[in-house]
């Protein structure tokens, strides 16, 4: 059997963000797109199941994000009867995380989404154009022991935008 392809991030030069915000290249996460299945995560929301983040990215479509083994375990437990399908999109997508108290203000420079807590609370998932790149945005605040949650967004986009998208997000962080 052929070896699994080695993952290479499309972000070849991950220069750290400016100021108080942090950018992280999470592209190596396993990403699986599920269509037409029956998953109890509504469109526009996400839910952590063990190590896997289940994102309701379209009205009948979900994206599973996490370590390869954990994602495979979730997929094997799905009801894929009927016209359901799963596609591994690990190598076709990138994932970048933007974290920091001013993450929303930084994003407002590049994106028309209402990022207020009322419209996009923690756990929200929206399709959006960010710096002209069509991507899925998931708000997944970072919680560490004994501290207040820090605002964090994850962006899932086509890998061919890799370095440009990183640089564009980095530019947004410049003044914070």
């Amino acid at each position: 059997m052929a070896d699994a392809p080695v993952f290479q991030s499309p972000i070849t030069n991950p220069t750290p963000a400016k100021g108080s915000l942090t950018l992280t290249d999470e592209s190596e996460l396993t990403k699986v797109s599920v269509r037409g299945a029956h998953i109890a995560v509504s469109f526009g929301t996400c839910e952590q199941r063990g190590d896997v983040l289940v994102v309701g990215s379209r009205p009948d479509e979900w994206t599973l994000l996490g370590p390869a083994d954990a994602v495979a375990a979730v997929v094997s437990g799905l009801d894929l009867s009927g016209f359901a399908s799963t596609t591994d999109i690990t190598h076709s997508r990138l994932m970048i995380r933007l974290t920091g108290d001013d993450a929303a203000r930084a994003m407002e420079k590049a994106c028309g989404i209402d990022l207020s807590d009322a419209m996009t609370p923690n756990g929200a998932a929206v399709g959006a154009s960010v710096a002209k790149v069509t991507c899925d945005v998931v708000r997944d605040d970072v919680v560490s022991d004994g501290r207040e949650a820090v605002r964090s967004y994850r962006f899932l986009a086509d890998r061919s935008f890799g370095q440009y998208f990183w640089d564009a997000l980095r530019d947004c962080t410049a003044e914070f």
């Binding site: 469109f43 009205p59 929206v126 959006a128």
Partner: peptide, 8 residues
């Protein structure tokens, strides 16, 4: 067409 959102 909701091209950046739900793609419907």
């Amino acid at each position: 067409y909701c091209s950046s959102g739900c793609r419907r």
